[in-house]
Design a protein around this nucleic acid. Sequence first.
DNA 1: CTCAGTACCTGGTTGC
DNA 2: TGCAACCAGGTACTGA
Length: 274
Amino acid sequence: MPELPEVETVRQTLLQLVKDKTIEDVSVYWGNIIKRPDDPEEFKRQLIGQTINGINRKGKFMIFQLDHLSLVSHLRMEGKFGVYQKETPLPKHTHVVFHFTDGTELRYNDVRKFGTMHVFLKGEESDQKPLKQLGPDPFDETFTLEYFYKKLRKTSRNIKAVLLDQSVVAGLGNIYVDEALFKAGIHPERVASTLSEQEASKLREASIAIILTAIEQGGTTIRSYLNSQGEIGMFQQKLKVYGKQDEDCSACGNPIIKLKVSGRGTHICPECQR
DNA sequence: CTCAGTACCTGGTTGC
DNA sequence: TGCAACCAGGTACTGA
C-alpha cells in the first residue's frame, strides 16, 4: 500500500473507526513486527488499558496517540489495518490484533511481514529511531529549495536514489518518485549533483504537486486488494509512467520504457526525461 | 562518513 | 501443465 498519500488516507479513515476506543487486550501472532519493546509480551502489557486519542503521520509512519504512549507503525510494502467485529473470522496473514472494550478489533494484516511497530513514551518518539532520521514531508515549510538543492549538491548518487532517501524528504516511494521525475522532465539516472538549481526547483515543485494531488485522490491502489481500509485510491487513474511500460507517453506519444535504477523498477519516457 | 548490496517475507506472474 | 526464477508500493543492516 504505502507511500505518503496512502498512509495519510489510511490515517484519516482509520481515525474515524478507532478514536476514543480503549485497548482491552493485544494478540501478537508474529513477534518480529514488534520492534520496541523487544519483547512482544511487554508490548502487550504496555498497551493494555490505553485509549486511542488520535493518529498522526510523519512520512510513511503512522503515530497512534495513546494516553501516555505513542505507537509508531510502518506498513512497509503490504501492511494493512482494518477494524472488525471480534466475531469476524481472522483472515490469513493477520499478525497483530488490538482488542477494544467495545467488542471491535483493530487488526494488522501483512502478507510479507515487513511492517514494524514501536512503542515510546509520549513525546519521546521524535528523538529516536525510526522517526528521528526522517527528513521533512514534501509539503512541509522546511522542505525549501535551498535545503533540497544543498542536499543534491553534496551527493554522488543518482537523483532517484536521493528522492527515495527518507532522510532527505519523507514520504516519496517508487511510484511517486517515477511520477515526479516525469513531471519535472528529469532522467532518474542523472547524478543528483549535476541538476541545475532550476531543475531542482522544478523537481521539488513536481514532488509536492504529485503528493498533494494523490492525497486528494485518496492515494493509489495498484495490485488492488479488495475490502480493506484505505484501499480506495483513485490516483492510479492519473499515473503517467508508473506501470505504463509499452504504452504511449501522454506528452509526446513515444513509448514508456521500464528500466532498473538503484535496484528498483523504474518507468520513464526517454524522450521527455533527460 | 557515504554508498551498493543483501536481508527480511510471501505470493503472483513470467518464461522455459 | 509444471516449476523455477523473477518481481512487488520499503527500509535496516553489513561491509567496502
